[in-house]
């Protein structure tokens, strides 16, 4: 068992465990905080996959941005308007059965597939390669995403104000 393996299991455990709490805890704020840990664990997994740039983006955008938006949503709808912060659940048993079966099926598919893997030797940073791809091959996608974000921003603002 190498150090790499130990770190992987650590982050995998953090991710899966936190995700489990995210979907089971009744208090929304607690869920949100566990989501933070889950996202953090996923960022760790990205680092292990030598995708350092994605890991940083994960932290900045997800933890710094999306999660804050979610928590704001909780605050706006629950605190101010005195709706109880606890959240109920429904159809637990069929959902549990369904997701369990689906999960086993997925894992079985993954295990039985004969994956063609290539072991890359150099584990250098991928930032430079990503940057070049982003402004060359994917420049149109990049621009379109910029426009999409702008539209989403304007749309969200106008919808929330109505």
């Amino acid at each position: 068992m190498t150090v790499y393996d130990i770190i992987f299991y650590l982050f995998a455990l953090i991710t899966v465990g936190s995700a489990f709490f995210v979907v089971t805890l009744r208090n929304i704020l607690h869920s949100a905080f566990f989501l933070l840990f889950a996202l953090f664990g996923i960022a760790g997994l990205y680092v292990l996959l030598s995708a350092d740039f994605i890991a940083v983006v994960q932290l900045v955008v997800y933890v710094g941005g999306i999660l804050v938006v979610l928590i704001f949503g909780v605050m706006l709808t629950n605190k101010i308007t005195h709706v109880q912060i606890k959240s109920g659940t429904l159809q637990i048993i069929p959902a549990a059965i369904g997701t369990l079966v689906l999960g086993f099926a997925l894992i079985k598919i993954f295990l039985t597939t004969n994956w063609k893997t290539v072991q890359l030797s150099a584990e250098s940073s991928s930032v430079q390669g990503l940057g070049i791809l982003l402004v060359n091959q994917y420049s149109v996608v990049f621009e379109l995403l910029g426009i999409l974000l702008l539209i989403a921003l304007i749309g969200a603002a106008s919808m929330a104000r109505r």
């Binding site: 899966v16 949100a32 909780v74 894992i107």
Partner: peptide
């Protein structure tokens, strides 16, 4: 892949079972 499929199922579970819309969103993020 196994970690991701577990995460996927947990996300689906969250989306299906939670009543609160924001919790559903969290499931989608997962």
């Amino acid at each position: 892949l196994i970690v991701s499929s577990i995460l996927f199922c947990l996300g689906i579970f969250g989306v299906i079972t939670r009543k609160n819309a924001i919790m559903v969103l969290m499931g989608i993020e997962l």
